[in-house]
Design a protein around this nucleic acid. Structure first.
Lengths: 197, 197
DNA sequence: ATGATTTTTTGACTTTTGTCAAAAGCCAGC
DNA sequence: GCTGGCTTTTGACAAAAGTCAAAAAATCAT
């Protein structure tokens, strides 16, 4: 399950950072030294509710979802992540407190995994690394805000059409049952919306 | 309207940063030199839709809201901010693109205002400033995520009770009409929920 | 205080979305 | 090609929330 691959696997991760602020060789080396490339099959839980999230993943290949259980024990998906995206349970990873969310792979995945304490060390040792870190956080923050706005402003039907328009690929890779709870509606309602037009 | 006040006004802002990473004297001086303390009365628009958000505000005193207009021209509030909180239109401030949101004061306010290009300069000149910047962004990101989750997971009634429990002061300072759209419900529904219990 | 706003509540009715149960469709493995 | 599990759709009904219009209550300026 753990598998060390050549540095070229880090290309996409590095260019993500590099586009925001030049990533020195030294930091690149440190990142490689403090991470590992892992492969997991689909339907594997990378984090369970109650556990502390202590790893951040960069998705090289595959897809994952973040969800939690509502009071009736039903799963509510809060996010789907794909290639070249960062995968964490925001609340638990940022606070170090036990998670209320689960992280589960949707497909067979290849991931770069960095432990939280290692990442913290990198941030403390290389201050300019925080520049890119800040920018990336801003980006994810923004996505989150758009999501919250849409949940507030739009009806189920409008949310569906917006999602379909923005990320049609999502519907190729994620089941409708999963997408429904992400949209904040029941699976039946989603099915009826889809039939309408 | 513009009013330069003594450095002691910066105390709360500095300690906010200082709690995350030591804020050198030099940076403190630079922040003071690159910002101004302003006073605005209530109901003043700090940002209009269509404009580019180029200022970040730290609220010393007062309250503000962020909202936008839905397709029927009705206001939807997305956030309320109070003392010791940072005030921006996330999307526009981060991307530099025209805002779809408005920022408006709810009360007479005293604010520390920093222009975006000045802030960017500070971030570039003082790399460790990005450490605190990252942490702060993480914090606001997290709040946003909680908000989105609650919009998805809970009914109007549950959202109201959660909000009342978490921030009862909000109801002291913000009208119910404003709170309703923040909760993603109509004013009438909020009124009925409140009567129920 | 008082009249004028503004905010909040109420009532009647409509629309949207949810729930439960069952049927249909799809797909992997034999 | 068949079988069993999973996903998606459908139907009937219930609950939640929205809309519109008007009344009541609270707040503000004079």
């Amino acid at each position: 399950m753990v598998d060390h691959l050549p540095a070229s696997d880090y290309e996409n991760l590095f260019s993500l950072f590099n586009n925001l602020y030049p990533l020195k060789e030294e930091i690149q080396t440190a990142i490689i030294a403090n991470s590992e490339v892992i492969k997991v099959t689909k339907k594997v839980k990378l984090l369970n509710a109650g556990e502390r999230s202590n790893t951040i993943y960069f998705i090289l290949k595959g897809a994952a979802r973040i969800f939690y259980l509502d009071k009736d024990g039903k799963e509510t998906n809060t996010w789907f992540l794909f290639e070249n995206e960062l995968l964490i349970s925001v609340y638990s990873f940022y606070t170090g407190k036990p998670s209320f969310e689960y992280i589960e792979t949707l497909e067979d995945c290849t991931l770069i995994a960095v432990k939280r304490d290692r990442l913290d060390e990198l941030y403390l040792k290389y201050m300019e690394f925080n520049f890119s870190g800040r920018k990336l956080t801003e980006f994810y923050h923004m996505r989150n805000e758009i999501q919250a706005n849409e949940l507030r402003m739009f009806s189920a039907k409008e949310r569906y059409h917006k999602l379909l328009e923005r990320t049609p690929q999502l519907f190729q890779r994620v089941s409708l049952g999963h997408i429904a709870s992400y949209l904040g509606i029941s699976q039946e309602t989603l099915s009826r919306i889809r039939k309408q037009k």
